[in-house]
C-alpha cells in the first residue's frame, strides 16, 4: 500500500504489456490461422457499415443525417469500442475463470487481478475492429463538411479517448456482476455491443426518452453523439444544453469510477469455487 498510485499504475501497465505480449507470441506461432482471423474480424465488424450502405441505396438520409455524417458517427464508436474491447474485452470471461479456478491463481500473483483477467488470452486480432473503424472514420473526416479548427481537432481526439474509456468502464461494470452470478455475461453484451449498435446511427432516429436514457443512464451518447454535434456544428435536435457536447470527459470519469467501485466490491465479495 506504501506504493504511490502512479507507481502502481505504471507497474500494472507494464505487467499488462508483458502478459499480453506473451499471448501475442503464442498466437503468432499459428500464423496462418491468426492472419485469417484478423481478416475475418475486419470483415465481420465491417458488416454493419455495409448494411448501412445497402440502406443508403434506398434512402438519401437517416434521421436528417447523410451517409458521410453517419460514417463519422459510425467510425468513432467503432474505434472506441474496438480499443476498449482490445484492452478489457476479455473481462467478460470472468465467470469462466472463476468456474475453472484460474481466478484463484491470479489472486495470488503480484499484479492487479483486473489486469490479469484482461490480459489472459489477449487477442491482438481484435485490432480488426479498430482498423475497420479507423478506415471508415478517416474516410468520413475527409468528406464531412467541417472547418477543421484546433477546437474541433481537440474535441475529435478527446472523443476517441473518452469514448474508449466509457466503453471500458461499461465492460468492467458489466463483468463485475459475474462475481454474483457467473451466467449473465450476455446481459453485459447488451450494453457494450448494444451501446455500440445504437450509436452507429444519429440519435435523432430514437424517441426522446431513449436519448435521455443514453445520456443520463447508460451514457453512450457521450461516446460520439455529443462531440459529433459540436464538430459538425449542429444544434442539439432535442434541445438539450450545448454544454453536454463538451461533457464527454465527465461521463468517462463517472463511468470509470463506478466500474472501479463495482470491481473492488466484487473482488472483496468473491466466493471462490469448491470447498
Amino acid at each position: 500500500m506504501a506504493e504511490p498510485l502512479a507507481a502502481r499504475l505504471a507497474w500494472n501497465t507494464r505487467a499488462f504489456l508483458m502478459l499480453a505480449g506473451m499471448w501475442v507470441r503464442v498466437s503468432w506461432t499459428y500464423r496462418a490461422s491468426f492472419l485469417l482471423m484478423t481478416l475475418a474480424s475486419v470483415v465481420i465488424t465491417g458488416i454493419d457499415f455495409v448494411a448501412i450502405m445497402v440502406m443508403f441505396t434506398n434512402v438519401d438520409s437517416l434521421g436528417g443525417f447523410g451517409l458521410r455524417d453517419i460514417a463519422f458517427l459510425y467510425g468513432a464508436t467503432a474505434v472506441c469500442l474496438g480499443l476498449a474491447d482490445l484492452v478489457v474485452g476479455n473481462v467478460e470471461r470472468l465467470g469462466r475463470r472463476i468456474r475453472l479456478g484460474s481466478f484463484d491463481a491470479m489472486m495470488v500473483r503480484p499484479v492487479g487481478v483486473l489486469v490479469q483477467v484482461c490480459a489472459d488470452e489477449f487477442a491482438i486480432r481484435r485490432l480488426g475492429r479498430v482498423a475497420q473503424g479507423s478506415l471508415v472514420l478517416a474516410w468520413a473526416i475527409t468528406r464531412v463538411d467541417v472547418d477543421w479548427d484546433p477546437a474541433r481537432v481537440l474535441v475529435t481526439v478527446g472523443m476517441l479517448v473518452c469514448g474508449t474509456l466509457i466503453f471500458t468502464g461499461i465492460f468492467v461494470l458489466g463483468a463485475s456482476f459475474q462475481f454474483l452470478t457467473t451466467e449473465g455475461s450476455e446481459v453485459a453484451n447488451a450494453f457494450t455491443y448494444g451501446g455500440n449498435a445504437m450509436t452507429q446511427y444519429p440519435l435523432t432516429i430514437y424517441p426522446r426518452e431513449v436519448v435521455r436514457a443514453l445520456t443520463f443512464l447508460v451514457p453512450v451518447a457521450f461516446v460520439n453523439w455529443y462531440p459529433t454535434l459540436f464538430v459538425l456544428d449542429i444544434p442539439d435536435p432535442f434541445g438539450l444544453p450545448a454544454a453536454l457536447q463538451l461533457a464527454s470527459p465527465v461521463a468517462a470519469v463517472v463511468v470509470c469510477a463506478l466500474a472501479a467501485l463495482a470491481w473492488r466490491t466484487g473482488v472483496r465479495r468473491y466466493r471462490s469455487t469448491g470447498s
Binding site: 434512402v59 437517416l62 446511427y201 432516429i205 431513449v210
Partner: peptide, 14 residues
C-alpha cells in the same frame, strides 16, 4: 428495439 428504430427511420424516408 435498436434495429426497429433504424428501420423506422429508413421507411420514413422511403
Amino acid at each position: 428495439v435498436i434495429i426497429s428504430f433504424t428501420y423506422i427511420a429508413v421507411w420514413k424516408e422511403n
